[in-house]
Design a protein around this nucleic acid. Sequence first.
DNA 1: ACAAAAGTGTTTAATTTACACCCATGT
DNA 2: ACATGGGTGTAAATTAAACACTTTTGT
Lengths: 250, 250
Amino acid sequence: MRNGNSTESGVNPNVSVDCVIFGFDGEKLKVLLIDRGQIIEDEDEKSYALPGNLIHNDENLDEAAGRVLNELTGLHDIYLEQFGSFGDPNRLTKEEDSLWLKSIRAQPDARVITVAYYSLIRADQFELHASSFAKEAFWHDIEALPNLGFDHREIIDSALKELKFKSKYQPLGFELLPEKFTLGQLQKLYEAILNTELDKRNFRRKILKMSFLVPLKEKQIGVPHKPARYFTFDKEKYQNYKSNDFYFTL
Amino acid sequence: MRNGNSTESGVNPNVSVDCVIFGFDGEKLKVLLIDRGQIIEDEDEKSYALPGNLIHNDENLDEAAGRVLNELTGLHDIYLEQFGSFGDPNRLTKEEDSLWLKSIRAQPDARVITVAYYSLIRADQFELHASSFAKEAFWHDIEALPNLGFDHREIIDSALKELKFKSKYQPLGFELLPEKFTLGQLQKLYEAILNTELDKRNFRRKILKMSFLVPLKEKQIGVPHKPARYFTFDKEKYQNYKSNDFYFTL
DNA sequence: ACAAAAGTGTTTAATTTACACCCATGT
DNA sequence: ACATGGGTGTAAATTAAACACTTTTGT
């Protein structure tokens, strides 16, 4: 069967990483996709992909994920969490995908298993700069995803499931949130992830009881309503919370 | 750097699977290890390993894990759950490990990332039959592990963490338990995993309220105390429970 | 008769849920 | 003045925690 010989120096032909970057714009959840710049005869057939690529032999998996994400989208210093590996032997066999692989890979038919990572960032706080084989990097609504290459739909579904799970069973990490935020924004984020509405008073009470949110003096300015107080994470207390396992009812 | 060329037909030189099989003997948690049969000058330096090996190019990861586990230990039809991938470039560089790899692998210096699986079974309900490069397969107490090759210590720690987490946040699956069991046995299992003592009455009330445990007519026989009723899982109700996410306070 | 684990309820404390009004700001 | 989201408390229902005695069997 298909198998990998190494010709690209230091690139491992059989192992890739893929990044599912969730973005929150204050209202809705998005995913970061790339356009591989293929020219397709039938426009409706156009497909997009997650930022991902083969690993190098001298880097570990986390490093590879960070590097690949940076190379394709310009994002850097994003906390990435591994959530699964996908290795169906047929995951690369869509017609379009294999054409595309032929155009960029030394061994386009090699068996590839991919290690998948996810993160959650503020969509509007990071600039995207597509490069390498990414013609464009852009946010797409998490509902109604476009055609995706490979098994990337499945990978996104799996990442979303993981994100939902994690958000209920442990607090969203400071890694995943902007330095300062209002409780309203935080609630909207949880609502977007869990796809439900939450009671404002109960939400605030519970999230504050955990006491790793610290109020800042700063408040919103220029908003056409009572300005909300900003909060930030106390990383130490947050770590304590994370190590004692606990549950979280919103 | 080290990189894989394929010479073993169909074997992928860069991707392996490792299985952390937890066994419960009614009292304590064990892990299934293999003896690779190395002759070591200094007996104290002897090291063991998890059952694991390279994948084939025509099988998916779950299949590979099942196959490899069977080849090395004789276990078959064990439900295996993927919980992480390990890919430090230096994970294969212990002196003894690389000697051993030279003796069994076509490309002993290839970069290998491993996809790890775990399971939990009754230690006394399965017969072990070591074969392939496993000279012996045996249960070892989870406390005080012996020297282990590669990064297998780290992989076991990670699996145990996952098992603890899962056991608190969703019920242990029927996949992981014998067909019939008493509530006392089930409680002992939870106590072994969580490494705590639980209140008998509270435990029974809570676990029964979930109602996927169904009482059988059958009771223990030959025990020198009041015989306990056997229970079994109702798989349908259990699946419902699993899909609605929920929490579980023991 | 004794040892050993099975089986069973109640009381108290903590947590969760549902719910409505005033406040500060920009336009 | 009005529209917008911020901010706040309480009562009722549910859930969690602590705790002790009787039962059934084998030896």
